[in-house]
Amino acid sequence: MAAEDVAQTVRQISQEILAAGELMSGAPLALVGIRRRGEILAQRIAAAIVAQTGRTLEVGALDITMYRDDVVGNRSIIIPMGTEMNFRIDNRAVLLLDDVLHTGRSVRAALDALMDFGRPRFIRLAVLVDRGGREYPISADFVGRRLEIPDESRVRVSLKPIDSDDAVVVDSAAPAAAGVRP
C-alpha cells in the first residue's frame, strides 16, 4: 500500500467508526493507540472524528512492553516508552488501535494494561491491517485491510512522523530481522 492507499484506508476506518452508534453516542469516547504506530493511527482517526462531528474525545498512548508475553529468549531488551493517558478510563467507551493484527498477543497485553487503569464501559478494536495467523481468540471490530499471507511473511507498516512516509509493505521472502521467531 502506498501513501494514498494508507490515507484512504484510514478515512474508511474513520467512516465506519463514525457510523458505529455505540461509539458515537452514550459513554464518553477515548481512542487509545498501542505504541508506537497505533498511537499515530489514534491521532489521525481522532482528528477525523473531531473534524466531522466537533465532538470532544480523549486520545491516549499505551505502552504494552511490561505486559507482553511474546518473548524470544534473547538478552536484548526493549526500552519502554511509557504510557500517556491523562484521563480516567472508567465508564468510557474505549477504542483500541494498532497497526497490524497478527497473533493477537499484543492486543491481549493491551487489554491487560488497560484493566490496570480502570474499568471501561466497553473496548473495541480497530486495526489498519489484519494479516491473520491468530494464536489467541481475538478479533478486530474495524479492519482497514485484510491480508491473506503466509505465516512467515512479515508486514511492515510505516507511518509519519515515525517513518519518512506512509506505507504498508509485505516482505514475503522475509526471515525478517534477526532474532525474530520462526
Partner: peptide, 12 residues
C-alpha cells in the same frame, strides 16, 4: 530490575 532480569526481545 527490568533491564537485568526482564524478558528478552519480542517477536513483533
Amino acid at each position: 530490575l527490568y533491564l537485568c532480569i526482564g524478558a528478552g526481545q519480542f517477536s513483533e
